[in-house]
Nucleic acid binder design. Sequence first.
DNA 1: TTGAAAGCGGTACCAC
DNA 2: GTGGTACCGCTTTCAA
Lengths: 306, 306
Amino acid sequence: MRERVLRAASELGYRPNLIARSLTTRRTGMVGVAVGSLANHLYPGMLQALAAHLQAVGYRILLFTAPLDGNADPELEQVMSYQVDALVLAATTVSSGLADQCRAAGIPVVLFNRTSDTTAASSVTGANRDGGEEIARLFASAGHRRPAFIAGDPNASTSRDREQGFREGCAALGMPVPIVEVGGFSDDGARRAMTALLQRQERPDAVFCASDQMGLIAMDVARFGFGLKVPQDVSVAGFDDAPPASWPTYGLTTYVQPILPMVEAAVSMILEQLADPTAPQRRVVLPGRLIVRTSCRLPSDPESQP
Amino acid sequence: MRERVLRAASELGYRPNLIARSLTTRRTGMVGVAVGSLANHLYPGMLQALAAHLQAVGYRILLFTAPLDGNADPELEQVMSYQVDALVLAATTVSSGLADQCRAAGIPVVLFNRTSDTTAASSVTGANRDGGEEIARLFASAGHRRPAFIAGDPNASTSRDREQGFREGCAALGMPVPIVEVGGFSDDGARRAMTALLQRQERPDAVFCASDQMGLIAMDVARFGFGLKVPQDVSVAGFDDAPPASWPTYGLTTYVQPILPMVEAAVSMILEQLADPTAPQRRVVLPGRLIVRTSCRLPSDPESQP
DNA sequence: TTGAAAGCGGTACCAC
DNA sequence: GTGGTACCGCTTTCAA
């Protein structure tokens, strides 16, 4: 009998309606993912990995792209109305106040590549502070004396943490306080910032950019806008290890964000929260590592021995 | 009374359950989107635009990333079980047989950046054939005599159409039949293909790559692997106008895929099908245009006057 | 205007 | 095993 039903079902091309099922099981199997600009080279890879991992454990992604300007919250409330089982916030423009609402609604939230003060959400980030410090160390060891920093969005925890690590590193190693320009994680912003930096009387000799995206642009500005050689005339470092950083034309020295471990951590945190809603929120910081390529002067280079 | 209810609702933080609503309205407001590798620089932009446009008309994206290897269909059936209102297929690895199933289930399907023989699905593509032809024309006008083509996935209609246009263009303009290597739209594949091309006795003097992604890699191989100058030693052209193509280090000449119009067309086709399920399937081919940058020799260059 | 009831497509639990 | 029923949260229709 059971078989007969099964047979008939497949003959008729019957597909159980997962939506209807979710009504009684209270599990939709959907995870809302909010992502800012996919133009940042970091996010496509993150999204791909997240989708793959989530699919592997039976979840699907309800995607939501935050508008670059202004408030993303209303749209995000829509996503909540879809009864997603969890929420991954990888966009900086989403207010963290929303995390509290989710918490109240019993939806686990994990902040990806950002943190916030709220206790309502877990977060996964790379070792932003450490990375900034490592870059400072590299600059110092190569004998640089005029460090600069191109910041991302001043409101983003990622940018602030990287800057803090860099500043502290510079201070600890006897370098001057870095000159700071804001690039806002955007292409145009980065272009303007690097241009401003290179137009100064006392041109910086080493520029740390808060993202590879901006680092690549900074290199282009140095080379094509000012005819400078990288790293002979100016060292450039980035953050993320986005794919183009390793392309031979760039060879951008950078601090890796361990995307895969970050994604794995995010997924397991979601699963953990789902299994036990009373589990405490966690803040995971995953170590990266410095990848030295060719865009920065090295200690062994003759230029560094004055 | 009405007001009192409304007030109470908002005080309690009530959110209507869109999932439950969809049960009776038979509209989930979700569109399934299958995308292959986000590593191809074309897709993040496409996804972003699609998400924005779909959100604007009240739809959300249920994302599905196709595994690179093998069969994506089982996972896609899951997506169908979520009762998506429509499906956008931007991945080549999804079988077009699935489109028929959707059709049977009354779900509109639009193929994005690909076609297939099935009559069950609409499609939106760039002018692949024309683009290939334009590149041939450019090569011919610059006096090139040894054209080559780096193909993408041989099963992909996009790659085949571009190749066909290129071949026909070469033939019509009196150039030899192009040498063809398969790059498979992958980084490694492109590297191997370009390497094979440049190792030939009779080295090609102009290489057309089926995607910008591969074109950029081809340029790197030429420059860093073989120490060649682009375009003096070899011209390279791509297809898509992906963001890095316009970066000054590359200046990759390419044929634009009009992403925004393509996305708009896809969305309006979905809306059309939703409004009238009996509406005929359409195949839209959107014109692009040649963007001449610095990676190809030009007719006015001295090298082209032998 | 307000209220009650049926039904969307499933699941879960209960008798038989 | 098999069949029946209540219920998930909403919309729609029909009565009051």
